[in-house]
Design a binder for these strands. Structure first.
Ligand code: MN
Ligand code: MN
Length: 549
DNA sequence: ACCAGACACCCACCC
DNA sequence: ATAAAGTACG
DNA sequence: GGGTGGGTGTCTCGTACTTTA
């Protein structure tokens, strides 16, 4: 079934050189001398040395035991390594701390080398105990009495990281993207990449991004209060480039939240004040409320209510207003409760059903309603969001300035920017398709033509032809247009929260969406907003509360 | 879409 | 000796 | 019982091999 094409034995080298060349051409002026030297030196290395270098670069690192390196396509490890040592990419005379050594050894080797008695301790505990006895650093050969061969230390990871960052424009993609494409797992739309546009305008932007990445990593590890303070100290002053600005705000929020949990209210507040992203204002209000500074909280609440950054923030603000108003003796008009249909279902306790595996609530409810005449499907966001992606396809992958910067994108770079629709005025033409029902053909065409191409909104495993046809036949054009408009209004927030189930009634040309709630589960904010929207627009959706018999 | 959002599930608290 | 976790790889 | 706020656990290709417990 899986016809994995055989890759050439050094496929990874081709990928790596492609990437390095790409960056060297486009970002030549942003590179440091060291980085330019690297590209040049690498190019002139013997092939097997290049191979070894790339293989090590995509492994854990930075230390590698020679006896754990074994690649059929590299004939002589020693010889390949020789050139890498010569040009300084690899070092073999390097001092290792005890921790570094310990992690290179298996537990058995560790016990053997340091003659440990308590053999049954976990490895991490052993390391902690032994670490006190060996505070100094030594070379690997000294640590191991030359019993275990060489260790190579890769000295270039910072350079590679920069190349990856410049190529992809983000920190979460790496060389494996190439392989996944080669084996056919992911395929990408053939958009044209803007040669002029560069994600990083200046070296400073690259450095800032790297800095933020490092701080985020430190934040994950940080446990002590001092750690957090140190991170806070290192947060850069406000930034002009807006994606970086966004990342900075997110970091502020995360850090502030950590301070909150340590009851460092003032530190938390000052960080939230620096943030432009939700939930910064919400958190400030909650903190002020907890401090019983109700008037200050109310002020911030009002500023939020007059200019919420999104519906989610507004929704929360209204909730808080209700109880804060009570505390202040003010009146706050509660919004009219929504008229979403709710029903209760009592089903047999699933634990009593013998034999088969445990089903989740949604699946049980689905089976309860499902019939061949009225098929019920567990879709969550996949159906409507997927239809949205198919419908929007031509505009989504339209080649605009700066929309695409590398060959591995499943959405344009500005997909979640407020200006997305403004920059693509021809979206209105796509909306016109709904007026005469041409949207069906359009979406079917996209489904057929774009089969398997990566799109943020489309899960191809989910979308078979039956579901597609069922949905297109039964969901009115007007409903789809309204729903897509709402997604476009705020893609980031409105691409989720859609109901669990959808049941089709092809005979009656009707359908019904169902949000399933088991005992102890409750409607989330984004789900509530969608349900309110459905009810306001006469789109059939209900909540099913399940209890066990 | 940057160890994340995107779900359900768990507990606690307030009426 | 087993299952779970980590890692490398296409 | 509701309404809350807060915190977890799960999962992103699938497979083979090594290490840990
Ligand atoms: Mn769900
Ligand atoms: Mn549900």
């Amino acid at each position: 079934m899986n016809a994995t094409p055989d890759l050439p034995p050094t496929y990874y080298l081709s990928n790596f050189t492609f990437l390095v060349d790409w960056v060297a051409v486009r970002y030549e002026d942003l590179l440091t001398q060291e980085e330019r030297d690297f590209a040049d030196t690498f190019q002139h290395l013997p092939l097997h040395s290049q191979c070894l270098f790339v293989r090590l670069s995509s492994r854990k690192g930075p230390f590698f035991r020679a006896d754990k390196i074994n690649y059929p396509e590299i004939n002589s490890l020693e010889d390949a390594a020789k050139y890498l040592i010569e040009c300084g990419f690899i070092d073999i005379q390097v001092l290792l701390s005890f921790h570094e050594v310990a992690h290179l050894l298996t537990k058995a080797e560790l016990v053997e080398a340091f003659s440990v008695n308590s053999k049954s301790e976990r490895k991490s505990n052993l390391i902690d105990q032994l670490a006190h006895l060996y505070p100094s650093t030594k070379e690997w050969q000294q640590w191991t009495n030359k019993q275990l061969g060489l260790v190579y230390c890769l000295k270039t990871q910072h350079i590679i990281d920069n190349f990856l960052l410049l190529f992809f424009g983000n920190s979460h993609q790496d060389l494996t993207e190439f392989v996944l494409q080669d084996i056919g797992l992911f395929r990408y739309e053939n958009y044209t990449i803007d040669e002029q546009h560069r994600i990083f305008k200046t070296r400073e932007e690259l450095e800032l991004y790297k800095h933020l990445i490092i701080l985020r990593e430190q934040l994950e590890l940080a446990s002590t209060h001092e750690n957090l303070v140190e991170i806070a100290r290192q947060i850069p002053d406000s930034i002009q480039a807006h994606t970086l600005r966004r990342r900075r705000s997110k970091l502020c929020n995360q850090l502030a939240y950590k301070f909150e949990r340590q009851h460092q209210v003032d530190l938390a507040l000052s960080l939230y004040r620096q943030s432009e992203l939700p939930p910064a204002r919400e958190r400030q209000i909650r903190l002020l409320e907890k401090q019983e500074k109700y008037l200050e909280a109310w002020d911030m609440l009002e500023s939020l209510l007059t200019a919420p950054v999104d519906e989610q923030e507004l929704q929360i603000a209204e909730r808080i207003s209700l109880r804060l108003a009570k505390k202040l003796g003010k009146s706050y008009s509660k919004k009219t409760p929504s008229s979403v249909t709710e029903r209760s279902l009592t089903l047999v306790n699933p634990y009593n059903i013998s034999g088969t595996q445990q089903l989740n609530v949604e699946e049980i409810v689905r089976l309860h309603f499902h019939s061949t005449e009225a098929p019920c499907i567990y879709v969550e966001n996949q159906l409507l969001t997927g239809l949205f992606g198919l419908w929007l396809w031509p505009e989504m992958f339209r080649s605009l300035d700066g929309a695409f910067a590398n060959p591995f994108q499943s959405a344009p770079l500005d997909m979640y920017e407020a200006s997305f629709s403004l920059k693509r005025p021809r979206i209105t033409e796509l909306f016109c398709l709904f007026e005469d029902g041409y949207h069906k053909q359009h979406i079917r065409d996209m489904w057929r033509m774009k089969q398997g191409l990566a799109n943020h909104f489309v899960n191809w495993h989910f979308f078979n032809e039956e579901i597609l046809n069922l949905a297109l036949e039964v969901i009115p054009a007007q409903h789809l247009a309204l729903i897509f408009k709402r997604i476009l209004f705020d893609v980031r927030n409105n691409r989720s929260g859609l109901p669990d189930l959808i049941q089709f009634f092809p005979d009656k040309n009707d359908y019904l969406m169902l949000e399933v709630k088991g005992p102890g589960d409750r409607i989330q904010d984004n789900q509530r907003r969608w349900l309110d929207f459905f009810s306001a627009n006469k789109i059939p959706a209900e909540v099913v509360y399940v209890s066990w018999q």
